[in-house]
Design a protein around this nucleic acid. Structure first.
Length: 475
DNA sequence: TTTTGAGTTGTTCGA
DNA sequence: GTCGAACAACTCAAA
């Protein structure tokens, strides 16, 4: 019997997993593998740690179904080549990834095996719609979200798939490495003590989380999603990041109950579409992950201010909402979407620090890190991204606090600035690393940069920059 | 080809 | 307190 290899990557689930389902259909023995390569080892501390939990959970789930997950380490091509040779594998299956490096690697591996008579089949398991499927009337790709969204909403999104009904084990299993030896938690150190309290790991947990959201919170989503003092968002980004749930599953489950005419559910699936849009842009324009989407921004005079950067990272800028957000990020591995915009705006506008410094810190801290969404978000706020967003749209942290956290519930939960505390707030505060902790009255009395001054300075910098560009072009 | 309307998430100022 | 205009000009997408 020939063996089918299923190479799992960012699709750590059993249901709606096209590669896994197709590979199991033939009735041939199935070899589900995960490969730790150098690139994965270099990913962010929180993401890597959380990845380990996901792998553990996936293995558990597979074992309940009579099979297992094989963990292997090395360069993917080499690892696969050995498996093909040693275990008489005849076919390879995977779900596609859309960053440039993965595409390059996968294309190479695919052609390597196909000329040797080993077919490789790849599937859409990550997005609602593969990136090449949507085009404007003139045949180019969308650069603006709203038209993209309208086009996507017109499409028939493929139904999500069932779990494989049976998975046949190979006669002999390759030796799996031990997760513990991969030390996926080594960069996070003691941070995991904080993070563990908030994660919901694996496919089952993701489903429960989603059902709870559908049941209790989606009906208020449109109005409450921006509120920081309530827990109204779905929190599914964490599970989506590892593929523990698929966007198609979410899309169809929502639309089974609600229609797109309903404000709440429309707004929610719109957010899913943003995730698709980020990967869509990444596919059509790979440089978006690391470079300014608008190349003229390459000349923007960001300041190098490592002291301010560190204070931003540790949440001691002296701007309460910013600092609360940065501490939420550190102790929970996530941050409310609106606060992401506020802290990003403060870094790039008030502090005039290059958005890539912020992007990298987020990549190191987020357990829901998604390279495409992260890059799109940062570029959007910075003004270098694919959006007509004018630079003068500078978030005012105080005003944002008033609007979205009027009683300061969020801020005091993560930041110790007052003497009175709720229990939960104290708990969060205690999670912050000791060297970050502030003694009594040590919280900055003045922000690093005064809000008014910072805003004016940012506007001036932008206006200068524009002037130079115009004179630069004409001279 | 040209034209037209619109563009996730904002802020401030003055009426 | 609320509301609309101004902030500035450009690119995108569809008609």
């Amino acid at each position: 019997m020939s063996v089918n290899i299923v190479w799992l990557r960012r699709d750590l689930r059993i249901s709606d997993n096209p590669a896994l389902l197709e590979a199991s259909k033939s009735g041939n023995p199935l070899l589900p593998i995960f490969i730790l390569d150098r690139e994965t080892e270099g990913l962010g501390a929180a993401f890597k740690w959380r990845l380990g939990l996901s792998l553990e959970k996936l293995d558990e789930s597979l074992r309940k179904l009579g099979t297992r997950l094989v963990l292997l380490r090395g360069e993917p091509l080499e690892v696969l080549r050995k498996l093909v040779t040693n275990y008489k594998a005849k076919k390879i299956f995977w779900n596609r990834l859309y960053d440039q490096d993965s595409i390059k690697r996968d294309t190479h591996i695919k052609s390597f095996f196909e000329v040797r008579g080993i077919p490789v089949s790849s599937y859409e398991g990550m997005l609602m719609l593969s990136p090449w499927k949507l085009k404007t009337n003139s045949g180019s790709f969308y650069k603006v979200f709203t038209p993209f969204w309208r086009a996507l909403a017109r499409e028939e999104i493929e139904q999500s798939l069932p779990s494989p009904s049976k998975m046949v084990s190979p006669q002999e299993w390759p030796k799996s490495e031990k997760l513990i030896d991969w030390e996926l938690d080594k960069d996070i150190g003691k941070g995991k003590v904080y993070l563990i309290k908030k994660v919901r790991v694996g496919e089952e947990a993701a489903k429960l989380r989603f059902e709870e959201f559908l049941d209790k919170r989606i009906s208020q989503y449109y109005l409450s999603r921006d509120r920081l003092d309530k827990v109204e968002s779905s929190n599914l980004s964490e599970n989506l990041a590892y593929g523990e749930i698929s966007p198609r599953q979410i899309w169809h489950a929502v639309l089974k109950i609600y229609s797109l005419n309903d404000n709440n559910s429309e707004m929610f699936v719109r957010q899913l579409a943003w995730r698709d849009f980020a990967w869509y842009l990444c596919f059509h324009c790979p440089h978006i992950l690391k470079k300014n989407w608008k190349s003229e921004w390459d000349d923007f005079p960001w300041t190098e201010n490592s002291d301010a950067l560190v204070r931003w990272q540790r949440g001691i800028t002296g701007v309460p909402i910013v600092d609360a957000g940065m501490r939420e990020l550190y102790v929970t591995g996530r941050m409310h979407n609106r606060v992401r915009m506020i802290v990003a705006s403060y870094l790039t506008k008030h502090l005039l620090i290059d958005w890539r410094h912020g992007l990298n810190w987020f990549a190191d801290c987020l357990i829901d890190w998604d390279p495409a969404s992260n890059a799109l978000g940062w570029q959007w706020v910075a003004g270098s991204g694919p959006d007509a967003s004018p630079f003068f749209r500078v978030f005012n942290p105080e005003l944002q606090s008033k609007k979205f956290d009027p009683k300061g519930v969020y801020t005091s939960k993560f930041l110790k600035v007052k003497s009175e505390f709720q229990c939960e707030a104290q708990e969060y505060y205690d999670m912050v690393p000791k060297i970050w902790r502030l003694k009594k009255d040590e919280y900055p009395k003045m922000p690093i940069v005064d809000l008014r001054v910072g805003r004016d300075r940012a506007l001036a910098a932008y206006s200068d920059f524009k002037k130079h560009q115009i004179s630069g072009v004409s001279s």
